[in-house]
Amino acid sequence: MTKFLLAVHVLAAIVAIGPVTVAASMFPPAARRALQSPGEPGGAETVRLLLRICRVYAVVGVVVPVFGFATAQNMGVLGDAWLIVSIALTALAALVLIVFVLPRQTAIADGLPGEDGERPVSVSSRATARLAMVTGVFNLLWAAVTVLMIVRPGSTTGA
């Protein structure tokens, strides 16, 4: 059962968290291009698609910690320090995504010109730079969690 839970946990992380990190990283440069060239075909649509990917896969990503907890319980490692740190970093990454990344992406996407060419809200390139920074923090948190999951102190893998 542990192997099954671990397989689902890892697959869910790849399928759910991977797209969020990639789409979130692609969002700021795509938004800058759309803001600089408002008449360019597909610019605003690309930004809105990246936002939708981030939103959908953020919801799907809830599966990752659910199966992570089940796997940890089966392995008897729920009290291990590496896992507690990993859980805290995962919670922090989720918080950064929900509180900072997604709302800023939404604000920027709302400020892009619509089909009529008008911008409902003014968005600066500084907003995209701040979003890029916050997205970088989000991605670094996931990288740290990934390293902890692979190296995990006390592991029997010899790492």
Rank of each mutant, 00 (worst) to 15 (best):
V151W: 12
M1C: 06
N139T: 09
T106M: 08
P65S: 09
T128L: 02
G111I: 04
T71R: 04
V147F: 07
Q36E: 14
L140A: 15
S25K: 06
A72L: 02
A143T: 15
M1W: 12
A34W: 04
A24S: 12
G136T: 05
I87D: 01
S155Q: 09
L131P: 03
Q105C: 10
T146M: 14
A23H: 09
R152D: 00
A7G: 07
V123K: 02
G61K: 05
I150Y: 03
V85G: 00
V145Y: 00
A129S: 13
G114D: 05
V99G: 03
P38T: 06
L97M: 12
V147I: 14
T71I: 02
A159P: 01
Q73W: 14
S122I: 13
P113G: 10
A159K: 11
P120V: 12
I150Q: 00
S37H: 15
L92Q: 05
L141H: 00
R130D: 10
A93T: 00
P28I: 06
T2M: 13
V10Q: 05
I108P: 01
I87H: 00
F4P: 03
V56D: 06
V121S: 06
V96C: 01
R126E: 15
F138Y: 12
T21W: 04
R55I: 13
L131M: 08
V137D: 09
V64F: 05
S122D: 11
G68E: 08
V47Y: 05
P28C: 08
G117R: 13
V22R: 06
L6Q: 11
I17D: 01
A81L: 13
V63C: 11
D110N: 15
A91R: 02
A7T: 14
M75S: 08
G111W: 03
V47S: 10
G61R: 08
A31F: 06
F69T: 03
V62D: 04
P153W: 15
V85H: 09
S86E: 02
L97K: 01
A16D: 14
G76M: 04
D110T: 10
G68A: 03
P38Y: 08
I53T: 14
M149L: 13
W82D: 03
L95D: 01
E45Q: 15
G117Q: 12
R52S: 14
G158L: 08
L50Y: 08
R48E: 12
V47A: 14
G136S: 03
V66K: 00
M133V: 14
G114T: 07
G114W: 04
F4A: 15
G76K: 00
L112T: 00
P103D: 02
E45M: 10
Q73M: 11
A58C: 14
E118W: 09
M26E: 10
P38R: 09
A58Y: 11
R52T: 14
L50K: 09
V137Q: 07
P28N: 07
I108Q: 05
L92Y: 02
G18T: 12
G39E: 13
A16V: 05
A132L: 07
L131C: 05
F27C: 02
H9T: 07
